[in-house]
Computed example of a mutant assay.
Amino acid sequence: MVSVPPGLAYLAAMLRPIRAIALVLMLLLAGLWGAAWVLRAPGEGIAESFVRQLAFFSGAGLPPPSAGGVTLPEGVTLGGPYSLTDQTGRAVTEATYAGGLSLMYFGFTYCPDVCPTELGIIGQVMEELGPDASRVTPILVTIDPERDTPEVLAAYVVNFHPKMVGLTGTAAQIADVARKFRVYYQRVRNAENSDYLMDHSSFIYLVGSDGRVRGLFRPGSAPEAIAEAVRGALRAG
Rank of each mutant, 00 (worst) to 15 (best):
P5V: 06
P6N: 06
P6T: 04
L8R: 09
A9T: 13
L11S: 14
A12L: 13
A12R: 12
I18L: 13
A20E: 15
A20V: 13
A22Q: 04
L23T: 10
A30Y: 04
L32P: 02
G34D: 12
P42E: 14
P42Q: 06
G43H: 03
G45N: 03
A47S: 08
A47Y: 08
Q53H: 06
Q53D: 02
A55E: 14
F57R: 06
G59N: 14
G61K: 04
P65V: 08
V70R: 04
V70A: 10
T71F: 05
L72Y: 01
L78D: 04
G80P: 10
P81C: 02
Y82T: 12
T85F: 04
T85I: 15
Q87F: 05
R90T: 06
R90H: 09
T93I: 08
E94I: 02
A95V: 12
A95I: 08
T96F: 04
T96I: 15
G107F: 01
F108R: 08
T109I: 07
C111P: 12
P112T: 01
V114W: 06
V114G: 04
C115L: 05
C115Q: 04
P116D: 09
P116Y: 05
T117R: 01
E118Y: 09
L119G: 12
G120K: 11
I121K: 06
I122K: 05
M126C: 06
E128I: 02
S134F: 08
T137R: 11
P150E: 09
E151S: 10
A155E: 12
V158F: 08
H161T: 01
V165M: 10
L167I: 04
A171T: 14
A172Q: 15
V177P: 00
K180M: 02
K180E: 00
R182D: 04
Y184I: 03
Y184P: 00
Y185P: 02
N193G: 06
Y196V: 13
L197W: 08
D199F: 05
H200R: 00
F203W: 15
F203A: 15
I204S: 03
Y205F: 15
L206Q: 14
G208H: 10
R212C: 01
R212G: 06
L216P: 08
S221F: 07
S221V: 14
P223Y: 13
E224P: 05
A229M: 00
A229T: 03
A229G: 08
V230G: 05
G232F: 07
G232Y: 10
G232N: 15
A233Y: 02
G237E: 12
G237M: 09
